[in-house]
Design a protein around this nucleic acid. Structure first.
Lengths: 172, 172
DNA sequence: GTTTCCGTTCAGTCAAGACTGAATAAACTT
DNA sequence: AAGTTTATTCAGTCTTGACTGAACGGAAAC
């Protein structure tokens, strides 16, 4: 089962994928599908395009868009002479996602540090708590690196990103 | 509100924190509290200690432990002459967590790559899909770095971890 | 063999939240 | 002003999954 697939099938499979992926990241599934549709269809997708294209109520589109806007992943646009709202991906949505993750990581890291600071000096738990904090510390510095890698302006003339050609099979 | 706090209060606040943190990471809250209790109380925490200490049903402890064991975060032990099971943190739980995250990241990365490979050469979506894939690529390499940082044996004689002394306020 | 102690499984309850339809609001058209 | 078109809000439904109590199974103690 393979060879050729119609672009429509590829497209809708991709949108379903992004729905599931985003769900795993903590977003509602529909918001993920909206995100996927914006990736695939590109600029200037209208509100009703989203509702009909994803076969979902306009109310769901409204709340999904709100969530995506709050997270800074999507930008709302208007066309002169048109009443509808149009949407597109925000400039660098992925860096924004990472920044959000970073914020959360930093918060939990400092909560742990807070507990450690309250601990009496002889507490036997201190070492294990420190290891727990270290985990979030290295997570934090890793995110920082990923951010650097991601929003490096990429001098090459195309919008091509640096990691695009990375070998996918080089795990560990 | 401050000055001194009893160790018990500090402990239970910490356990509640880990419950919430783990919930944000996708684990059930009780599993997070079990994890927190193992961090704080250390080796050899018995099954019934967990149930009574966290004030939850033994059934909940059972499933939480199962989840934590499946993820490789917790080890089950027994004491000679005792019928009860005892638990402690697995050797390097945080590296294991990262490995799990890495696995998922890699999976979604290859799903996106799969879609890209099916795309006709002239597809306008190609660039945006590539950027999406790049995001997971840099996430992946960041995780790899965090792993290196984490399970570096740390030559210093104590179990102290390298990032322990990192300045918490150096964000970006 | 019977009892006791533990852990697991399973059916059922409960709460959280995703999604919808209907009502509302706002802006433009006529 | 009345009527369209479009987005948001809100009450209600439905699904998912966390958690519990009770039944079960197995292993040691008696």
């Amino acid at each position: 089962m393979s060879a050729e697939q119609s672009l429509d099938v590829i497209r809708s499979e991709f949108i379903e994928k992004t729905g599931l992926i985003s769900q795993a990241e903590g977003l509602p599934r529909i918001a993920g599908r909206v995100f996927g549709m914006l990736i695939f269809d590109g600029d200037m997708v209208s509100f009703s395009d989203l509702a009909t294209g994803l076969q979902v109520s306009r109310a769901s589109i409204s709340t999904s868009i709100r969530i995506l806007e709050e997270r800074g992943l999507v930008k709302r646009m208007t066309k002169p002479g048109e009443r509808q709202d149009y949407f597109q991906l925000a400039p660098n949505p992925y860096a924004t996602m990472l920044t959000g993750i970073q914020k959360r990581t930093l918060a939990t890291r400092s909560e742990i540090a807070d507990t450690i600071s309250k601990l009496p000096a002889n507490a036997s738990a201190a070492d294990r708590l420190a290891a727990y904090a270290d985990f979030y510390a290295s997570l934090d510095s890793a995110i920082k690196l990923a951010l650097d890698e991601l929003d490096a302006p990429t001098t090459s003339k195309s919008g091509q990103h640096p990691a695009a050609s990375k070998d996918l099979s080089d795990d560990r």
